[in-house]
Write a protein that binds this DNA or RNA. Structure first.
Lengths: 341, 341
DNA sequence: TCCTCGTCTGCAAACGCTTCCAGAATCATA
DNA sequence: TATGATTCTGGAAGCGTTTGCAGACGAGGA
């Protein structure tokens, strides 16, 4: 475990010169630099990041807080964030904060704020104003993916608008009997994505003068098996069956499609289905969807925080940035079959 | 940004006492401890982990290298690893090393070895003996999920045995015309999982005296859409269609099942399908599978490295640990339909 | 009363770097 | 040749902790 001093001795220079040679900061002659590099290599020397951080005050480390890992949306964000960070020479510290506020506080105190990270990226996590303040007071940039956050640059699609767009697509095709299979309003994660998508759904119906009642909305978890079960229930009852379903996520839409197939209900002839995400499985199911790109969202927030770190004075958008969400038409939506009765 | 000295002044004690009071090491009177805690809290003081690491030599940080994030198997490992680490008070540094050896070396040099982590967990990554040596020389425990690795405790199911088990299940049901849809031998990741599963398949057939040829094996990527396309090809040609398919992973099996459904081929009446993993989607597809629990695998390797760090002298299993993989029977496999001609 | 032992606290020396400062060497220019 | 600018190098201070050591104190045993 050799230190900088060993390298200095071997190369016949001072510690200061070794530091400069290896870090590339300040003047060092080409010859010296070469000797130092060789000495370092032959000793297997690697700089101690703790020591270096201690004096520079920078860790080259970014903390990422995410509520779920094993789901396409979140996994994609993670991939985008990781790629962008490593490309810029930063390490990523990952915290999977699921629910409990207790756990949350613990991570915040013991890990994030411990001067272990230079910046924080919060994915779908409503940081409290207090937490925000503490981070900013420590000079640590923050950015978030998800809804607007006081004093934090954030980024997401407009969930209300996306839901409206999806619903409008169904309306435009001529559907009037539309149901929304979405997330449980009571169990939602931060930023109220579930109620926003429900809201967009209702707005679109209202604007089109189409009535809806509480039966127009059914809750499910955002995974294929749960949505499949819900779909079986809805579609299994002919009196309840709508001509179109707006699913709050593609996993939900796919579950519904599988349920329909099992019940011999043809999509899109008997039932149109639209989702949100443009999940990798959407294409093979011919699923019409609203596209968003979580990987690019991840890259974007990384760009924000890193630029803030490296370019003093630069500031990211002061508030929430809305990303475009575009309709991708496939074969799961069509005009409703003319009513036979 | 207050330091330990400010806390010391405010509490009217020395820096040493503050350190002891806050870390819980050494003697501190209850009264003093209280005063120090309050002083620290009122100043919003948090210990600098760089400074602390510098003197203790420990970072409380574990590096995790993983080739893929957004896939069930890997995502589950990640969840298990993260949970286990945070529970023990460690942070997780995530590196998503996809393929290039160049990138690999870079991460190894610039990040992992930089004294930034106390230990390394390699998921499905063949660390070279040289890399292993360097880490061990630095006193950093390593553990891996995946095949055996010289000098590294590793953990995985026995891929050959699991494939044999799956194939034997089909044979036992009476199938003789069995096909293997597996990973591409030429494009496989580390540890040759693809060829191992193919090997187990062939071993089982040979042991049962069932002949196979090169048409008995078809390659696909391990995702549902790719397997679906391959399934359509295989099953679309009646002359090629086997009575049973052993899929190297549940995603593949599901793709095949979806292809069969689309072609009007009944599972299991016309075609039995078995996979490996017991993926969350397996149940709703009635998929017979071989279960493995990547989350628990993640927890296990964490237990190994952390125990090594905290209990000097303790050593994990010196070599590769084989995990049980059990058959879970569902409705996708059955006796072959009696031959009609 | 004296000694020992356990508890509590402070001093000061690390830990391994980076960087400010000053001085030496080199080079171009006047 | 003198002058200044530029390039190169070393000494030393300091980053914010932890911890070994030693001293102080009170309690309990001989």
């Amino acid at each position: 475990m050799s230190g900088i001093e060993d390298v200095a001795n071997l190369a016949g220079v001072s510690k200061a010169t070794v530091s400069r040679a290896l870090s590339g900061r300040g003047y060092v002659s080409a010859d010296t630099r070469m000797r130092v590099s060789q000495a370092a290599a032959s000793l297997g020397y690697v700089v101690s990041s703790s020591a270096s951080s201690l004096v520079t005050g920078r860790t080259n480390n970014v903390g990422v807080i995410i509520p779920v890992i094993n789901q396409w949306f979140f996994g994609s964000i993670l991939e985008g964030v990781e790629r962008a960070l490593v490309d810029r020479g930063y390490d990523m510290m990952l915290y999977n904060l699921t629910k409990s506020h207790e756990e949350r506080a613990r991570v915040f105190e013991y890990f994030l704020v411990r001067k272990r990270v230079d910046a924080v990226i919060a994915v779908t996590l409503e940081i409290t104003p207090d937490e925000t303040q503490r981070l900013l007071a420590l000079g640590k940039p923050i950015a978030g993916i998800g809804g607007a956050l006081e004093g934090v640059p954030t980024l997401s699609i407009d969930d209300v608008a996306a839901a409206r767009l999806a619903t409008e697509h169904l309306l435009l095709l001529g559907h009037r009997d539309i149901m929304h299979v979405g997330g449980d309003i009571d169990e939602q994660m931060d930023f109220h994505v579930h109620s926003k998508r429900l809201k967009g759904f209702m707005e679109a119906l209202t604007a089109a003068g189409v009535a809806y009642d509480q039966d127009s909305y059914v809750a499910t978890r955002f995974d294929i098996p749960s949505a499949y079960r819900v779909g079986k229930q809805i579609l299994g009852d002919p009196r309840r069956r709508p001509t179109a379903i707006f699913a709050a996520a593609d996993e939900v839409a796919i579950g519904v499609i599988l349920a329909a197939r099992e019940l011999g209900i043809s999509v899109p002839d008997d039932l149109s289905v639209i989702g949100i995400d443009n999940h990798p499985l959407a294409e093979m199911f011919g699923l019409t969807s609203i596209e968003q790109r979580p990987d690019l969202q991840g890259e974007q927030v990384v760009a924000w925080v890193i630029r803030q770190l490296e370019e003093p004075g630069w500031s990211p958008p002061a508030s929430h940035t809305v990303l475009p969400a575009t309709l991708i038409m496939r074969s799961s939506t069509a005009r409703p079959r003319p009513r036979s009765g």
